[in-house]
Design a protein around this nucleic acid. Sequence first.
DNA 1: CGCTGTCGTGTTTACGTGAACATCACGAGC
DNA 2: GCTCGTGATGTTCACGTAAACACGACAGCG
Lengths: 365, 365
Amino acid sequence: MDSDGPARQVRVPIGGAQRGGSGIPGGRRKQRVSMADVARLAGVSSQTVSRVANGHPGVVGATREQVLAAMRELGYRPNSAARALRYGQFNTIGVILFGLSSTGNSRTVEAIATHAAAEGYAITLIPIGIPTQDNVLGAFTRMGELAVDAVIVIIEVHLLDAGTVTLPPDVHVVVVDSDAGDRYSVVDTDQAEGARLAVRHLLDLGHHTVWHVTGPETSFASQRRAQAWRRALEEAGRPVPPPLHGDWSAESGYAAGLALAGEPGCTAVFASNDQMALGLLRALHERGLTVPDDVSVVGFDDIPDASCFIPPLTTVHQDFAEVGRRCVQGVLRQIREGGAARPGTDLVPVRLVVRDSTAPPRTRA
Amino acid sequence: MDSDGPARQVRVPIGGAQRGGSGIPGGRRKQRVSMADVARLAGVSSQTVSRVANGHPGVVGATREQVLAAMRELGYRPNSAARALRYGQFNTIGVILFGLSSTGNSRTVEAIATHAAAEGYAITLIPIGIPTQDNVLGAFTRMGELAVDAVIVIIEVHLLDAGTVTLPPDVHVVVVDSDAGDRYSVVDTDQAEGARLAVRHLLDLGHHTVWHVTGPETSFASQRRAQAWRRALEEAGRPVPPPLHGDWSAESGYAAGLALAGEPGCTAVFASNDQMALGLLRALHERGLTVPDDVSVVGFDDIPDASCFIPPLTTVHQDFAEVGRRCVQGVLRQIREGGAARPGTDLVPVRLVVRDSTAPPRTRA
DNA sequence: CGCTGTCGTGTTTACGTGAACATCACGAGC
DNA sequence: GCTCGTGATGTTCACGTAAACACGACAGCG
């Protein structure tokens, strides 16, 4: 099914699946090996098994060996539910999001999962299909029942604001992509700086002004980029062309590109993400305009494919891995220090990657 | 564990906790509200609270209301650890994968998460970062301790070692992208049919033969596609050009494209995924070759961007959502029927999406 | 009027684990 | 030889929930 992804080699038999539920219908009933079983076989108490299982000192070599042998023989595995109940924590972080379809989300989640795993935490995904407030509230409610110690929210938080969202007080939260830094602990890419870099780059090349294709209005990232684009133009004393509205998709970028192709004064475009830039490139190409000679294009994200666009795309590189890392870090700090969330915004720096889609302007007919 | 008296010191950091309410100075309260607390406030037994919480019948209206009021007042939320311990199941499905970076993986996982959520299951991600055997083994070992009722493996199964790994017998498994249908329950896209469609399409257009850019050798999907490509050519009695090896990335497709540009006999190329096709398009374009006039290109996956490539890409559409859906379905069936995995392969159909990157051949100079 | 069934609710118990405490054996110190 | 300490191991208990069972009240019915 999948298409890329690294390569490896090993082999596995996943459990002989010999006996599962022993046919007892109804779903419950689970014949698992417990510490008591191991203890019985090893001829010790279950507490000693516990000590061995957790590597506690104070178990003499011979006993330990006996217990380990019994564990192996029975295929003992600790029961995480019992453990969680005992300790009051799950070693799991919940991630609330709309979908994995956007490049940014999936890469951020991947980084979150990786870093969390390194710290001994697992990730639970809570997808929210349709971005209605009810759904979001529902997810937060369910969250309380879910086996998670903390939550990372990858959703525009303003969707949560309207009503009375009350996060369970004992669940720690970090939010991505939001301006709610005054209330929550926020981690985000430095959208404004990225947009500023893109605009400055184009102006420095000699373009009189820069057009802009936005993302959906509901996205904070999109809003931020558009806002910074406008400010950068204003600060340079340049005219601000009317922004074109996209929805992150290449198709929407294509539509915008067709419109821009009809604007003779347009020599430079900043697209709010790489996909829309791709659509833009196609539209300009179809209309007989050459990039970068006739029109320069800058994207945002630096997806891996960007280097193979025609022409290779100049774009703002986002460090999704770093965003994920900081989310995990922030959440773990809250868990460990036991305190409440520290409001504040943690900005991850960006950098401009210059490729072949930008050049000094050439006067168009 | 009431608030009075010196709270027992707990060594392990307690998830959540502390901030609960009515700040008792210095009092580290272990704060989760339990059924007992609700019961006390409502003046009933905890069993009655349990009945109300689970919507069991046999609780008279007035009592129910009282309990609900107490729940609201205290902000009661059921403890899923205790529940899991009691029931012996977690309502959670684990997903083992290498990464979310590939289009296929992330979209499949998204579909899995969505469908699982609809059935009341949460998804736990178990990423395997580095492709060493130890890591894979580790993940399977941890799996046993993880709070999951079943596992979906999105990894070439032959990567896992048969030797030491034993997945707990009471964990149900569905595997994606594998040929292990004889041992496991496998769900996969119909890779062979997809590749066949691609080749047939090109041959039907009049191309004498079709070149192929593969994915990594370790990928099952890639192997299948290459194999089906070869067979389709052989069945048509056409020569089989030497395959070019890529790694799913656009860059690798670009490299392959540069090589193919030097093959005058090459008029049609089937790339094993869309990203490599993108690289191919760029390389051909740079070498002054026109697609589809000089060379026809077909991809695989039908990523959303493919319609905005230059030119829009003819490609094989994979239904990732359906793959995810069937995975969840398969795993839930195993959980509910309580039986072992049913070996067998469940193929999700594909379809060819014809766009502008393919055309009848034109003799090249 | 008493027997019995039903309904609403309380009590007991077990799920698997691990901290706290109890016990036991053995050797050192007096 | 007796106490005392120390280290290894066993016993008790609580974590929060919910099934199983127990109990009391009340209605139907003879």
